[in-house]
Simulated scan of single mutants.
Amino acid sequence: MREFLAAVNNELAQGNSLCLATIIAQKGSAPRSAGSRFFVRGDGSFWGTIGGGNFEAQVIEKAALALRQGRTELMHYRLMGADVADSEMICGGDLDVYLDPVSADDPDNLALYQAAAQSTNGGRGRAMLATLMIDGGSPRAAGRKLLLRHGQPALGSLPVDEDGLASLAAKLGANGSFPQQLWDAPGAASLPAPLLLESIATQPVVYIFGGGHVSQKLAPLAAMAGFGLVVADDRPEWGNRQRFPQAQEIWNRPLEKVLEGESLGPDAYIVIVTRGHLYDKEVLAQSLRQNAAYVGMIGSKRKRAMIYKALSEEGVTSAQLEQVHSPIGLAIGAETPEEIAISIVAELVMVRAARMGSKRLLMGI
């Protein structure tokens, strides 16, 4: 969503109108899950993908037409026969795609998508974009799109009463990483069409504690997978820009109080790979006081048992320790720093996908 909104905002700022295409429902096998999106320009060129093959080609054609006509459209598509072969699937499936033209001449669109894109940068808050999915209606943003930040309306408007707004705010506050979904909540009955809710979370950030060999291999992979990056090591010769050019921040702080005064938030992914048991223990103790999405610690089962025993004696509960991913990474038989880094990033992606409600993860696709 972060890269998508940045691209949409950039196109609109250059005066290019677009048609957004979002998969809003999926049954059976399909090349992409609900929530996948891309946009199509007036000349038929596009950014992103919703699966490729003949299916995507037909969506592009219809999206370009919807943009020229200035009308939204709910597109129903059944994948079967040659379409299945094009998408390299075993069996067919049904997909619903919402086509949403966004005119660069509409000042409400310009303001809304600029604000939405900015919501992904800086800070640790969350926002949500709600779109009234009228089939065959006007694509203008007024009365059809609403941006909420921190549970409060920020830009745009919807025909939703106070109870409905409160319900939207509750969804935002309860889990800022919910997937795109149709809204079924108090107040929805009064709406002329369903709502598409899109979570806009700030970029998830991987905090790597320790600047050693594994960390150096891990950093570029984490950045490539779409995570922000902070590297912490008390030794400037190990934690610096030369070793970690991808890092947004480098912390050269004593590890025994490296998180003092920090509130990393629920989009934080903590990776503990320091140079020794004592430092791992100290960083883990601090990490368990954070509301992080992920806490992982490198090391053998014997090392983990020693650290867990010491923390238990200091009052850390077994429930807290059960949340730690240790040994860290997916079990792929990794041995070298490069292989270990791959296993860690794979686990980070898996956890992120689960938090975002990935249907592919749940379906085992």
Rank of each mutant, 00 (worst) to 15 (best):
residue 199 S to C: 12
residue 69 Q to V: 14
residue 129 L to Y: 05
residue 342 I to E: 03
residue 5 L to C: 11
residue 110 L to E: 07
residue 35 G to M: 11
residue 266 P to F: 00
residue 343 S to F: 13
residue 275 R to F: 03
residue 320 Q to F: 10
residue 273 V to K: 00
residue 133 M to I: 00
residue 137 G to S: 05
residue 21 A to G: 03
residue 202 T to S: 05
residue 328 I to R: 02
residue 126 R to F: 14
residue 112 L to D: 09
residue 103 S to C: 04
residue 345 V to D: 06
residue 45 S to R: 04
residue 151 G to M: 12
residue 55 F to P: 00
residue 15 G to D: 01
residue 284 L to Q: 08
residue 154 A to D: 13
residue 268 A to I: 01
residue 139 P to F: 02
residue 354 A to Y: 10
residue 10 N to Y: 10
residue 203 Q to H: 02
residue 16 N to L: 09
residue 229 L to G: 03
residue 174 A to I: 11
residue 212 G to H: 04
residue 279 Y to G: 05
residue 333 G to L: 11
residue 117 A to Q: 08
residue 20 L to P: 01
residue 83 D to Y: 00
residue 339 E to T: 04
residue 43 D to L: 00
residue 281 K to H: 07
residue 169 A to D: 11
residue 9 N to D: 15
residue 261 G to M: 03
residue 85 A to V: 15
residue 90 I to A: 08
residue 170 A to T: 14
residue 305 A to H: 06
residue 358 S to P: 02
residue 271 V to Y: 01
residue 106 D to Y: 08
residue 257 K to H: 15
residue 83 D to P: 01
residue 87 S to E: 11
residue 200 I to D: 11
residue 179 P to A: 09
residue 340 I to Y: 07
residue 196 L to Y: 13
residue 243 R to D: 01
residue 284 L to G: 03
residue 55 F to A: 09
residue 332 I to S: 07
residue 241 R to T: 11
residue 226 G to W: 07
residue 187 G to W: 05
residue 103 S to N: 03
residue 243 R to W: 01
residue 324 V to S: 06
residue 46 F to K: 08
residue 237 E to M: 04
residue 334 A to K: 06
residue 322 E to M: 06
residue 44 G to D: 01
residue 251 W to H: 05
residue 357 G to I: 04
residue 361 L to P: 00
residue 10 N to P: 05
residue 354 A to G: 10
residue 328 I to D: 08
residue 252 N to Y: 05
residue 215 S to K: 04
residue 183 W to E: 02
residue 142 A to H: 14
residue 234 D to V: 00
residue 329 G to W: 09
residue 76 H to C: 09
residue 28 G to Y: 13
residue 117 A to L: 09
residue 258 V to P: 02
residue 244 F to C: 12
residue 316 V to T: 15
residue 24 I to S: 15
residue 188 A to L: 06
residue 76 H to F: 12
residue 42 G to T: 01
residue 5 L to H: 13
residue 36 S to C: 02
residue 49 T to D: 02
residue 78 R to Q: 14
residue 318 S to A: 14
residue 332 I to R: 07
residue 10 N to R: 14
residue 126 R to T: 14
residue 48 G to I: 01
residue 1 M to E: 15
residue 136 G to T: 10
